[in-house]
Design a protein around this nucleic acid. Sequence first.
DNA 1: GTCTATACTTTGATAGAC
DNA 2: GTCTATCAAAGTATAGAC
Lengths: 187, 187
Amino acid sequence: MPTPAARDRILDTASRLFDRYGVRAVGMQQIIDDCGCGKNTLYSHFASKDDLVVAYLRRCGDDWQLLFDEATATASDPLVELVRAVGARAVAPGSRGCPLRTTLAEFADSAHPVHRVAEAHFVRVRAQLRELAAATGAADPAELADRLMLILDGLYANGPAFGEAGARTAVAFAEDVLRAARPLHVR
Amino acid sequence: MPTPAARDRILDTASRLFDRYGVRAVGMQQIIDDCGCGKNTLYSHFASKDDLVVAYLRRCGDDWQLLFDEATATASDPLVELVRAVGARAVAPGSRGCPLRTTLAEFADSAHPVHRVAEAHFVRVRAQLRELAAATGAADPAELADRLMLILDGLYANGPAFGEAGARTAVAFAEDVLRAARPLHVR
DNA sequence: GTCTATACTTTGATAGAC
DNA sequence: GTCTATCAAAGTATAGAC
């Protein structure tokens, strides 16, 4: 009967290593060594590496949800705030871009559980952006949502190379897009 | 002494497999079997898998250059045409997004030769976009170039999920961005 | 009794030899 | 072109510590 604290510690360690080195580059033994737990403990919480990676991706999804909720809850312009928050994350030291995107790239097989979980995340994000876009009163919310999705994904992919200035470019870009999408009488 | 034809055949095979299954998921033996060449032949042309992957990425870079040149040579609006061409590629059946991005994600170690080659590609693309943006007479070419880079990268990442309609969204998006970036007297 | 630590098995990969 | 050495990784089983 495994203790929840150990599970968290393992997932913390695995997440840190996956974020830094990529999923395939990190072995189970490395996680065990770094975590200081026994092999038994790890495998009692996660039946396989795939299971562990899925748990990692779910946590990444939860992190996104937190960022999303925080950015959109209080801000006067939630979508711009969202771009700002993603930019901050994308240009943070050591960032390798969106962990869900990079992991999706590492698991090309669309039937693989890891691939499916990552893919589902982006479907959900697209739907979330659509809802948010609809709330702005844009003429075509679906179109606006997809434009913002392009900016967000492009920003997350290029953030490490673009740096702070690039993040500001993306924020200004999003502002322009939102201004242009608003119906004329509100501008 | 290796024949150039064999090298091309090997690289053709490897490229096809890497594109479909990802680099790490494809073993050298698989390439050899699929290509029908002997192990000796492969290793006489490519000293290691890393070498083969680097050659693959260079070919991907050349492919990009072809697409870039073709899109920008004759078109009245080269940057829009470029987005259109990338969209067509991104939504093509079996596309997994930009092979250079996915391979970059597979090789997280920034000191790894494969990582460096992929990274260098995007630095070059950014510079190319800057040149092209400057030619449009935009007020801020660097800003315009980065906005287009976001669209292109976002489109390439989301293309497989967005489909044809998403590609059209990106083209219309680029058109709007370019229109807005042109100095007032030209609009 | 659950945790750590370690030994072992199997599998699949790269790479080299003949 | 087959055969083999080497190595690393996933998982399983086992031995020992608090």
